[in-house]
Design a protein around this nucleic acid. Structure first.
Lengths: 342, 342
DNA sequence: CTGAAAGCGCTAACAC
DNA sequence: GTGTTAGCGCTTTCAG
């Protein structure tokens, strides 16, 4: 592995000069410039970014901490973040926490040792106030929270208007004539999940439909919980005619429950869900969804984070970006008009 | 940010002693050990991994170069690799090339500067012999190729038995009575795609069904090409009764074409495809697939790579690991028995 | 413009 | 056991 020293020898200049032609910060005479370039090519020299990081005290690396890359919502987000980062010559280290706070803390500690310049974080649901986030921030490493905004902490975040998205979806269900609408929420330790529940309640309140507590079930944003809570909701005699599911993975579980119980969608039960699952569009039933711009959340998050890093942080107060959602009406709700008078 | 020097001062010992208690390579007296630990806690010290990397000339970082994290096959692979890496205290830097050779070269160059200890690579389809891979290898950075094995280069690889997987799928189609079977291949610049085509041809040859060149269409492993090649294949009067699709993304495209043309599956056209798309299982039609252990490919790949790194490389000759595939027979092929005598 | 030299924070000899 | 010290490869003053 050629070093800057060898390049300097080969080009018969000082290592300072080599550094100057590489960084371009200090002018170098034409003649020496060419000698250096030739030496670099001849030796196949690639500057050691580790040494540069040590000297400059910045690594041009970002940590990205998500729940699970296998969830298409997050994989799109990661793609967006990587694209934005690469454009500005930042690299991304990814970590899956599976929504476990202990893993999140562990990862944050690793990231500290690795001296990443900033962190994109999808916080794990935890009851306590996330002190590990505050500490990281205080230490000078900027964090941008994605998708979920942790409670009781001043931090940049990029997410969507969950309340409005849920409200619109439930309004849509109501407009179709449904009055018996259940919901499967995410973990209510997450603000995101609470906002979606709130939107659901608001939509019902608007038209004076009573909220029935037994039709509100708490899941955890994973498919298995959608399956279980879905079964509970649909097995009884007195079941809802429509369901609002708080995320895409849980919708998968609900669909499985539906099939097992021999219920048709939308005929027996109409389904509206948060998250648009990209690859399922060509399958039946095509789900009515509250689509989130996952790619943009990741892209904008990385963008904002890099801005923070390069502006020396602490300049302005925390930025909260909320993207709008888009209600996509499809066959899991329409194609069946629920009769109004019953 | 506390440094080892400050810890030494606080604990009233030399920096060497601090280093010794951290690495544990040299014994330290009980008393000083405790003083150091206390100082570390008090100062919130986290060793600077950048400095350590420079000194040790290894970063404990792996580069992972894939086509697109958004493709569930790859996101599972990445998850597997990250899990394996983390277990051994390696971190992963991910990059998407969108199957473009120029991006791949660029990424490899970045990875070289970043001094990653090894690279997990899904090669982009390119005509020429991949010299950039050979150079990286020669420079001493081990590479493990995943999913696709580049031609004309001795390199470790982890993939599946594509030929056998395709053969079994087409045999299944034949067993159902189909004699008019088309295929949409991946880019034939990829050995992977060629192997799947070969399996298809072999299965037909086994029962003396003539290969019809007009029913062999070359796609590129992306959904759009599945859609286009699918349309071409199915629009004509003289169309196949069954299709073998060489990957999951293209299957999505074909399904879209099917819907547009008003063709039912499996009634009008039976479909068998490579790749099991994880979240589509609850939708209709449930696809008959040649399932690949994507997670295991990633996991084993990282495992093998780390072994190479830590055994000082160049020990044994290239390892080629081939996982078996599993044919999952589902409703996109069965549920409709094609009549034998026509 | 150019070269010399001082570190960035850490590990690993090496003496004691 | 413990302290001292020489770098790892680079950037950046600082003289000239």
């Amino acid at each position: 592995m050629a070093t800057i020293k060898e390049v300097a020898q080969e080009a018969r200049v000082s290592i300072g000069t080599v550094s100057n032609v590489i960084t371009g910060s200090v002018p170098v005479s034409r003649q020496r410039q060419e000698r250096v370039l030739a030496a670099i090519r001849k030796l196949g020299y690639h500057p050691d970014h580790v040494a540069r990081s040590l000297k400059l005290q910045r690594t041009k690396m970002l940590g990205m901490v998500i729940s699970d890359i296998t969830n298409p919502f997050f994989s799109q987000m990661v793609r967006g973040a990587e694209d934005a980062a690469l454009e500005r010559n930042y690299l991304i280290l990814t970590f899956n926490t599976d929504d476990r706070v202990d893993r999140e803390k562990q990862v944050l500690s690793v990231l500290r040792s690795r001296r990443v310049d900033g962190i994109l974080l999808v916080v794990a649901p935890g009851v306590e106030c996330p002190t590990h986030i505050g500490e990281t921030l205080k230490r000078g490493t900027p964090i941008v929270c994605l998708d979920r905004v942790p409670p009781g902490i001043k931090v940049d975040s990029v997410s969507v208007d969950n309340e409005k998205g849920a409200r619109e979806a439930v309004r849509h269900l109501l407009a179709l004539g449904h009055k018996r609408i259940g919901i499967i929420t995410g973990s209510l330790a997450l603000q995101t999940a609470q906002e979606r529940l709130k939107g659901y309640k608001e939509a019902l309140a608007e038209v004076d439909v009573r909220v029935r507590p037994e039709w509100i079930r708490e899941g955890d944003f994973h498919a298995e919980s959608g399956y279980r809570r879905g079964r509970e909701l649909l097995m009884g005699r007195d079941r809802p005619t429509a369901l609002f599911i708080s995320n895409g993975l849980m919708a998968i579980g609900v669909l499985k429950a539906l099939t097992e119980l021999g219920l048709g969608c939308p005929h027996d039960v109409a389904l509206a869900t948060f998250d648009d699952l990209p690859l399922t569009e060509v399958f039946k039933p095509h789900l009515t969804t509250v689509a989130q711009p996952a790619y943009s959340i990741g892209y904008k998050g990385a963008d904002l984070l890099i801005q923070r890093i390069e502006s020396g942080n602490g300049l302005s107060s925390p930025v909260t970006i909320r993207f709008p959602t888009e209600l996509k009406i499809r066959e899991s709700t329409v194609g069946y008009k629920f009769r109004r008078n019953r």
